[in-house]
Simulated assay, not measured.
Amino acid sequence: MSSADGSPGSGLLYRLYQRRIRRGLDPATLPGHVAMIIDGNRRWAKQLGYQTASHGHRAGAAKMREFLEWCDDLGIRVVTLYLLSSDNLTNRPDSELSDLIEIIAELAEELSHYRDWRVQHVGSDAGLPEPLVAALDAAEARTHDHRGLHVNLAVGYGGRKEITDAMRSIVASHHAEGRSLEDLAERLTPDLIGEHLYTGGQPDPDLVVRTSGEQRLSDFMLWQSAHSEFYFVEALGPNLREVDFLRALRDYAKRNRRFGG
């Protein structure tokens, strides 16, 4: 649906349709934790004729601020945003990576001053430039006692690396306690591994959303998403509309979650 000027998501019919979907959502059926893979920022910039991908990344960051507001207003408690993978640190051009790192640092700073949101970095500091690590640490420290929406910023994140780091942490802790290898084998459980993940202590995502029509996980929350529901949106990241998200929630509410059964 488009308005008279052709822009999607701004006409009267669109707004009425959006309100109808929102009214039809039962708060009891909404996910408690939503994970978002924002994809398509570079394609968005290219389609609009921009010379660099940074325009797309900046537009994507602005859209993620909107997305968090949608979630917060609906009462969703935890949101994880996949902003920069560990693979991105080695497979993106230096110029694009430099711009993206600056944008993420600005986003972390902004979110840490918004509403009563708690910002947490989930990922590894390895390979991240010091200014970005400092920005993420500062946002985390500034919002540590906040009780509003819990915002996980997955930066320098890789699912396989997370599991590897968790296992290393378990082994190191076990060794420090002077326990035997046999004892470690007996103690090693999914719950113990979960406690040592970057998201330790948090609920697993109920719903994982990805923009741009791509249907893959890209090494995102491999452990935590074992029983998640997935929803793929055709819109490129910066073009994501609230109605797209409401449709995802409506679809989620209709599913029969069997948790592996």
Results as ranks from 00 to 15, higher is better:
residue 166 A to Q: 10
residue 88 N to G: 11
residue 110 E to S: 14
residue 86 S to H: 13
residue 112 S to L: 04
residue 154 A to R: 01
residue 106 E to L: 13
residue 97 L to P: 01
residue 221 M to Y: 06
residue 107 L to V: 05
residue 120 Q to F: 07
residue 149 L to E: 04
residue 163 I to M: 12
residue 190 P to T: 07
residue 192 L to Q: 03
residue 94 D to F: 06
residue 205 P to L: 08
residue 161 K to T: 14
residue 91 N to F: 04
residue 91 N to R: 14
residue 199 T to Q: 01
residue 135 A to F: 03
residue 159 G to F: 01
residue 201 G to T: 05
residue 160 R to E: 09
residue 157 Y to S: 01
residue 165 D to N: 10
residue 135 A to S: 15
residue 210 R to P: 08
residue 190 P to Q: 08
residue 134 A to V: 10
residue 158 G to E: 06
residue 186 E to G: 00
residue 199 T to L: 02
residue 211 T to A: 07
residue 168 R to H: 14
residue 196 H to C: 07
residue 91 N to G: 02
residue 148 G to H: 11
residue 139 A to P: 10
residue 214 E to R: 06
residue 84 L to Y: 09
residue 170 I to R: 00
residue 217 L to H: 03
residue 148 G to Q: 08
residue 165 D to S: 05
residue 210 R to C: 10
residue 194 G to D: 04
residue 151 V to T: 07
residue 128 L to F: 11
residue 191 D to L: 05
residue 185 A to V: 12
residue 98 S to M: 09
residue 226 A to M: 11
residue 193 I to K: 00
residue 204 D to L: 03
residue 148 G to S: 11
residue 224 Q to P: 03
residue 174 H to G: 04
residue 123 G to S: 06
residue 129 P to N: 09
residue 87 D to L: 05
residue 90 T to S: 14
residue 102 E to C: 05
residue 143 T to L: 03
residue 200 G to I: 13
residue 158 G to N: 04
residue 211 T to S: 15
residue 197 L to F: 01
residue 149 L to M: 12
residue 99 D to K: 02
residue 95 S to P: 00
residue 173 S to Y: 01
residue 104 I to D: 06
residue 160 R to P: 01
residue 105 A to G: 15
residue 139 A to T: 12
residue 111 L to H: 06
residue 96 E to N: 10
residue 129 P to L: 10
residue 83 L to A: 15
residue 171 V to Q: 02
residue 106 E to R: 12
residue 84 L to S: 08
residue 184 L to I: 10
residue 139 A to D: 12
residue 101 I to P: 00
residue 179 R to N: 11
residue 133 V to N: 02
residue 128 L to T: 05
residue 113 H to L: 13
residue 206 D to G: 04
residue 136 L to E: 07
residue 94 D to K: 12
residue 150 H to D: 08
residue 137 D to I: 00
residue 157 Y to N: 03
residue 139 A to H: 11
residue 119 V to T: 08
residue 200 G to A: 12
residue 102 E to I: 06
residue 204 D to C: 11
residue 170 I to L: 11
residue 187 R to M: 13
residue 151 V to C: 08
residue 97 L to G: 02
residue 116 D to H: 13
residue 187 R to G: 02
residue 199 T to G: 00
residue 101 I to A: 09
residue 86 S to V: 02
residue 155 V to N: 01
residue 225 S to T: 15
residue 122 V to S: 01
residue 103 I to Y: 00
residue 211 T to C: 08
residue 110 E to V: 08
residue 85 S to N: 08
residue 124 S to T: 15
residue 150 H to N: 12
residue 109 E to K: 10
residue 91 N to C: 07
residue 91 N to S: 10
residue 144 H to E: 14
residue 166 A to K: 04
